[in-house]
Amino acid sequence: MIFVNGLPAQLPSDARVSLLDFLRDHLRLSGTKKGCNQGACGACTILAGSERILSCLAFAAQFDGQSISTIEGLSVEGVLHPLQRAFVEYDGFQCGYCTPGQICSAIGMRAEVKRGIPSYVTADLLAAAAVDRNELRERMSGNLCRCGAYNGIIDAIIAVDVEVEP
């Protein structure tokens, strides 16, 4: 049994089914996207607990008893998550294919910043990172956008987090 956006679901019997295919093809939750299917693009990013991971490189069978969240779980009763609204307002996408992964990734990223995890570009590994645009670009580098909406994506992330310095 796995819990997806708070709801229980039966795991597949075939161990080969990736978490991504399980979400899309078994549960019909097609918000999570399949881009490269080899861990290089970030389109399939979901949240396992509060950690962002790639669902294409995980087997569904590994998540027995665990809770995951997808883009479908972010809005409450039809009201968009603040990051979803910000992506619309700040032109954080054009075609939208990478957007569910970008938004789940950004939510996981903010949790990492709160935990004090440094990035490769953090000057002082022991101090809280000053999360500027350079930091956000590095921390979001696992999500590619072929439309090149990167500036809008960074703007949207900054807009919803007052702790983030523009």
Partner: peptide, 25 residues
């Protein structure tokens, strides 16, 4: 904290690799 403090070369090498999602896995 001990890795960041005592072995920064290791922390920074890990952080230079792959993406945050992959490092979480």
């Amino acid at each position: 904290r001990l890795v960041r403090m005592s072995y920064p070369v290791l922390a920074r090498a890990i952080l230079s690799g792959a993406s945050a999602q992959l490092r979480n896995m």
